[in-house]
Design a protein around this nucleic acid. Sequence first.
DNA 1: CGCATTTTTGATCAAGTTCAATATCAGTGG
DNA 2: CCACTGATATTGAACTTGATCAAAAATGCG
Lengths: 249, 249
Amino acid sequence: MPHHLIRKLEQFTELSGSDKRALKSAASTQRRFGARTDIISEGDAPLHVNLILEGWACRYKQLNDGRRQIISLFVPGDMCDEHVDALREMDHSVATLSPVNVAEIARPMLSQMIEEHPRIRKALCWNVLVTAAIQREWTVSLGQRTATERLGHLLCELFVRLRGIGLTQGNSYALPLTQGELGEVLGLSNVHTNRTVQELRRTGLIVLKGKYLEIPNLAALQAASLFNPNYLHLDHEGRDFDAPESELS
Amino acid sequence: MPHHLIRKLEQFTELSGSDKRALKSAASTQRRFGARTDIISEGDAPLHVNLILEGWACRYKQLNDGRRQIISLFVPGDMCDEHVDALREMDHSVATLSPVNVAEIARPMLSQMIEEHPRIRKALCWNVLVTAAIQREWTVSLGQRTATERLGHLLCELFVRLRGIGLTQGNSYALPLTQGELGEVLGLSNVHTNRTVQELRRTGLIVLKGKYLEIPNLAALQAASLFNPNYLHLDHEGRDFDAPESELS
DNA sequence: CGCATTTTTGATCAAGTTCAATATCAGTGG
DNA sequence: CCACTGATATTGAACTTGATCAAAAATGCG
């Protein structure tokens, strides 16, 4: 069930009952992957669209000499490469981090849904734009922010994204990444990532135990990380397209 | 005249005479900007789509404390934010680097063109995907590549992009960026950017005089920078949609 | 309990920043 | 054509951030 996708899209615009049923039926073909497994590999021809139902995944690219950069993080409700069918082959890989449940959505199915449900089309379009904005923000982080700001910024972003789909508990959330993987996101070595985690711990900005993160004072962490959530465009920006009362069921 | 855009799109699929005329008429409203001027500023509501006809521009983001990161480079034929009308306000700014000529394309005009010219729609879709792939590659560069590799990689990318639109002369092209601006792209200080330029000069991989760059041995620079052009998807990937012979005029 | 992975620590090293000064260049006005 | 000016490029030296290497401690899991 694409609960998280529905929840995510509803941050933009309220969907009708019919919209939601369409999303549910589109996500009916499911598949399970273990942790640290490629879902799609660089060089593959893109087939269906993968919608993450449960678990975390990432986009990554590996350089010839082995260095690896994680380019994006996917959490439940995220879709991997919704439009790459226009391209012949993947220029990057997608892999799971934790065990993952994906829905494999056939492209014609997706096209048909978009055709028949203009509200979904708009919401997915918004989603694509926000995904691009996140990528840009990561560019800024890697280019300008210090290690501490970078880590703090990422943890703020994930908090906001996860809260939007109901995967936070109070000021906490499950973060199923090792410090090594966090380093691959942040462009830092695992050793320095560890020291950066400790720095944020020492200043009381985060409590990270095992795979569980708590942010005691979000505003403080945001300020320390120069985090401005505007790029996530969460202010119900598609409210003009909300489904009418009568169609909500 | 959107020569460069047409040339760029034709790397993907051959356009018909009618396609090209549509693009030309869409790009009829022109505007000129001096160097280092904002075309759109963060916080603005996006209006029309800006198509760069001549000159170079960039997307950038400025942090509260003044640090600036250039997020993308726009060269002739590039469009800024073709789909952001779904968002309420810009989360970044777009500014010129050199003096720039832009065509301001009204959104309804763009929608209509896409509606009436499926080949243009496909080509623009490819263009959006390649733009996203470039952004991802920059993430990899900033996260994993050394200063030298980063600079080399950027110069290779620009060479390939510019060659695609006919803006290279042999193995050279005009590069209207200061070293300071180059640094803002690469996430390096101007001082270190200068030293990195000198390093590439010393090893004979580039000849950079003023605003003019020569790459004596592209393959060598590519190898030194771990540059793989696959992410630019230039292999005429849309050949299946080429306009028929009869419609080329 | 035992093994593999992950986290943590210490020490050394390299890459890149900062600050400050100098040199070069392009354009401007005379 | 030349001197003047502001921006850009270049150099040197000291400093900081983060990487690397290696080992130890903690954790998780079968």
